[in-house]
Design a protein around this nucleic acid. Structure first.
Lengths: 337, 337
DNA sequence: CCAATTTGCGGGAATGTTCCCATAAATGAA
DNA sequence: TTCATTTATGGGAACATTCCCGCAAATTGG
């Protein structure tokens, strides 16, 4: 059934050449007579010859494949980032193996094994909210396989990273709320294990400080990004003796869910409670009221990460410093604030 | 920098064994002394040995990799389907190479080359709206590489396919609108090149016929899924002398955009115009008004497609028929109708 | 016109693994 | 004891390709 794969030896035999010559003709080496090359190319075309990348990779120790490990696929964030990454990767001649770790550490570890088995030339990683041990990623460093983090980065590894200025984005979002006259601004924060949660929280605090708005411990809730729990926390906030007049959510899905909960209680957004999110997901402009949010250049993040990775793969010597690329965010003001 | 990869020969030398024995120990072959196996396994662990899948694949002619080609990543449909497919693939020991063809034929062809170069054991494909020539996919058939279509299928190839009952889903959606008292139901259809467009259109017509609602050519518009054009078509429909009182859109993004356009004209959904979509994207429940839509079991589609593919890869003889698996849809009634 | 260089091509090792065949030792049965 | 069988291991081909080395013929320069 599965018929014999056409090899350079088949071509060589047919043309009474050696496999070396055929190989040279095919790879575009100079020292091969134009006629010969022509003949080889024509026959290869005719026989529908495909180079066996397995054999080539085995010799060259390069697969021209990069791996991408992301924690989830539910929001539009990672698909968009992947599109960006794939764009520059394929332009540079790399194909892409994508794994999704479902926000669980176990799966992430399994995914790194897949990447090693596939002999990828480098990996792009955004860690799960559970990941606290990084041994499975340090293996790549040890083996000399370049690694670049984006979005959810690992602080204890000295490798290139692509992030946005979470602190600044958060800072400006909260300043915006204060500018709208809000005095009691709550923050639904992400898990403290993630650096981005921490930075967004710090930006929030800084904005309050700058405008002399008192910081109230009670108004900050860290949660594990399990969207089902938003309901509990928002209700808790609204039931406070002195409830908030605005909620700044760590990301858009959280903000959207927050709006749903507020509306369900018969309160109005933004009249009663203003809501601001982070990331500018595709959905955010469509919901009612449209969500004010801190937009990230998601596709550009993917592009930058892939570029950094490929640069690193192509680098000859180990004489370089791990760049941390920080992209700018932009506050998109809509109806919800 | 890039240090020598640990091979079975390294292990063999260290233990004064032959590579054959080490190979046998590692693959769990019976005829190897328990002590020896133990020693090999321990040393492999200690040296952090990883099997070189390239070499193995070169011999076995199996990469344990499946390819997935999808037309886009913008709606939640394909990411969700991919999650399903990856789930069953990885359970069966396969990793996944994903390509996104950006709704262009050119890119799709390029993607098939990537798949061939990667020597995938099989591919899952959903074609672009542009794809009319299928030679690049027929190559896989010729080479004996299994192929399964899902969602956007190719009619002229006799291979397994996973689809939903588009006709039936469409039929019920339109019946629902008629049941709500709508008499002039427009249909924003997809490009006629796609089978799903045709089937959804047929379901629409059938529902009208069944309830003796006259079919009006004027109320059906086929378009190329370029979302920016929805505005033009919806405005055209609303400007008709005898405008529609409902619009059935070929998919959810179209329906959502339709609602935006209607709202911008100051009309009310569903009071003035009811809107129904198809697919139940993640967004659809969140917008205002929440969208009535025909839900597809997207993850299950991905799972079924991957399962069909793996079955086909594992099949010994060529004695089989190309199954067409048709999954059921479910009408989700929300505020927009 | 002869040496020197260039051009074009072939041979063979190497990549890391599996798998078949051979071989030696150990075990068993008569 | 002796031959047959089993057990455990080694040797080498094969997979498809690249790349180094070598060699002959062709071309060039003086």
């Amino acid at each position: 059934m599965k018929r014999h794969q056409v090899t350079i030896i088949d071509i060589a035999k047919e043309l009474n050449l050696s496999k070396s010559t055929v190989s040279r003709a095919l790879t575009g080496h100079k020292s091969v007579k134009p006629d010969t090359r022509q003949a080889v190319l024509e026959l290869a075309e005719k026989l529908d010859y495909q180079r066996n990348m397995l054999a080539i990779s085995l010799i060259t120790k390069k697969t021209n494949t990069i791996g991408i490990i992301v924690p989830e696929f539910h929001s539009s964030y990672f698909p968009k980032a992947i599109i960006g990454a794939q764009e520059v990767a394929s332009k540079a001649g790399y194909s892409t193996v994508i794994c999704q770790s479902d926000e669980t550490y176990e799966t992430e570890v399994a995914n790194t094994r897949v990447m090693l088995a596939n002999q990828v030339d480098g990996i792009l990683v955004s860690i799960t909210k559970e990941t606290r041990n990084f041994d499975h990623l340090k293996i790549f460093q040890r083996k000399g396989i370049p690694i670049v983090f984006f979005n959810r980065v690992c602080d204890e590894m000295d490798v290139p990273k692509v992030i946005v200025d979470d602190y600044d984005g958060s800072f400006r979002a909260v300043c915006h709320l204060i500018g709208r006259g809000r005095k009691r601004i709550a923050h639904l924060a992400g898990p403290s294990s993630l650096k981005i949660s921490e930075k967004r929280l710090n930006g929030y605090k800084a904005a309050l400080r700058k405008h002399n708005v008192p910081f109230d411990e009670e108004l900050v809730i860290s949660y594990d990004l399990n969207i089902d729990k938003v309901k509990i926390y928002v209700n808790h906030l609204l039931n406070l003796e002195n409830p908030p007049d605005a909620i700044f959510a760590v990301n858009d899905p959280t903000a959207i869910e927050t709006i749903q909960v507020i509306k369900k209680r018969g309160l109005k957004v933004p009249e009663d409670i203003a809501v601001v999110g982070f990331s500018n997901d595709f959905v955010s402009g469509l919901i009612d009221p449209a969500l004010t949010t801190v937009a990230q250049p998601v596709k550009e993040i993917g592009q930058a990460a892939a570029q950094l990775l490929i640069d690193q793969i192509n680098r000859e010597v180990a004489d370089w410093k791990a760049i941390i690329k920080v992209l700018k965010t932009e506050l998109v003001v809509r109806k919800s604030s």
